[in-house]
């Protein structure tokens, strides 16, 4: 199949010297590259691979942490909303109670005031009636004295007063 000869014009000719050179040079190349190149490249690639894997793992961890933190935040947010709702409800209840208390107290005070005013009015009325009665008695005595032309003594005066009062009472009521 192969022609071991120095005939370079034949593509299938094989010359020992180039063949041996190819073997030796290729072997030397393989040895040099195996010693000085591939270990360095493999180490660099492996370190980068580890770095990338580490970064991916760290990113995944950070993502998991962020997700957990977000869930915690959302949970706390829901809790805070519930607390806020409860506080608002409680505040409303307290306000309602305070308003009710205030209204009750106002109504009580108002009733007291009304009662007091009524009492005062009754007292004033009674006083006015008493004063009017007194004044009417004096006026009746005075008129009677003038009509009789004489002074009436205490006995007459008393009798007149009582009579006047009776009459006044019978006519006034």
């Amino acid at each position: 199949m192969f022609l071991f000869a120095a005939d370079a014009s034949n593509p299938m000719s094989v010359q020992i010297l180039p063949l041996a050179t190819a073997v030796v040079v290729a072997l030397v190349t393989v040895i040099v590259l195996s010693l000085f190149v591939w270990p360095t490249i493999a180490k660099g690639l492996d370190e980068r691979n580890e770095k990338i894997l580490g970064e991916i793992k760290a990113a995944e961890d950070a993502r998991a942490n962020a997700k957990a933190a977000q869930e915690e935040f959302e949970r706390k947010l829901v809790q805070a909303q519930q607390d806020a709702d409860a506080m608002i409800k409680e505040a409303r209840a307290q306000a309602q109670k305070a308003a009710d208390d205030l209204r009750a107290r106002s109504e009580a005070e108002l009733a007291e005031l009304k009662k007091r005013a009524n009492a005062e009015m009754d007292a004033a009325r009674r006083q006015a009636v008493a004063e009017l009665e007194a004044h009417a008695a004096e006026l009746a005595v005075s008129v009677a004295s003038k009509i009789l032309g004489r002074a009436i003594d205490a006995k007459d005066q008393k009798a007149l007063v009582e009579q006047s009062i009776k009459e006044f009472a019978s006519t006034g009521r």
């Binding site: 192969f2 593509p11 299938m12 000719s13 094989v14 010359q15 020992i16 010297l17 180039p18 063949l19 041996a20 050179t21 190819a22 073997v23 290729a26």
Partner: peptide, 9 residues
């Protein structure tokens, strides 16, 4: 062919 045979060796 000498070279490729050398590599094939």
């Amino acid at each position: 062919l000498s070279v490729t045979l050398g590599l094939a060796v």
